[in-house]
Design a protein around this nucleic acid. Structure first.
Lengths: 111, 111
DNA sequence: CGGGATCCGCCTAGATACTG
DNA sequence: CAGTATCTAGGCGGATCCCG
């Protein structure tokens, strides 16, 4: 049994999946891997996600200390950038492993 | 946009997560990584999963060609072994990356 | 022993409209 | 521009009982 930030996980794999699991988190992290992005830039990279869901996932990732949110303006139009924290950067090899396998799978076993 | 086995994914990361995402699949694969296991052996490794869920996840993984199910007896008590397929073995580096990060996270940031 | 059948709660995520 | 509010649906996963 593993404990992390007050939550219990039956397996070390569960812990990681608890942080980056779900339909969209790895996609967000994949796009943030190469540098910070604004909210709308992220949206353009992920045309099929709804605003509500994107917003929720970003907030969760921020609460988990994986990404950070920086506001550059005080009045509208707002400028907000999202980027990986130092802790979030330790996930890069994991995300890369996940994306690499996805590419491998389509290339090797496409229809 | 990526297509794999009739399903569409907006990102190569989505594809992988579609196969190994969810609460239990990575845990199952983690335990099968080192060799085949019987149904009840898996259950003992995963005390908090319900039978129904374990059963469903195993079936999904089998349908996706990641694990294979082998029946050794024709009459009860049945002996059924689960193991990775060749395709499933290509996921080992991904699973290992995921579990390694989980271990790293608890060691580094556990209070 | 290795599941299937049934019922159900909850949470994730979608659609749409609105706001500082 | 960068979100929030509200409502809703679908599916994942839990609980329990049953079967070959």
């Amino acid at each position: 049994m593993y404990t992390f930030k007050g939550k219990q996980y039956p397996c070390c794999a569960s812990l990681t999946m608890g942080m980056i699991g779900g339909k969209w988190k790895t996609v967000i992290l994949f796009h943030l891997m190469e540098g910070e992005l604004r909210y709308n830039e992220l949206r353009k990279q992920m045309p099929t996600v709804t605003e509500r869901t994107l917003s929720l996932q970003l907030k969760t990732l921020e609460q988990d200390g994986i990404i950070k949110r920086t506001v550059y303006t005080s009045k509208p139009p707002l400028k907000v950038e999202y980027s990986l924290t130092e802790f979030g950067e330790t996930l890069i090899p994991v995300i890369q492993s996940i994306t690499n396998w996805g590419i491998f799978a389509v290339e090797k076993y496409s229809e």
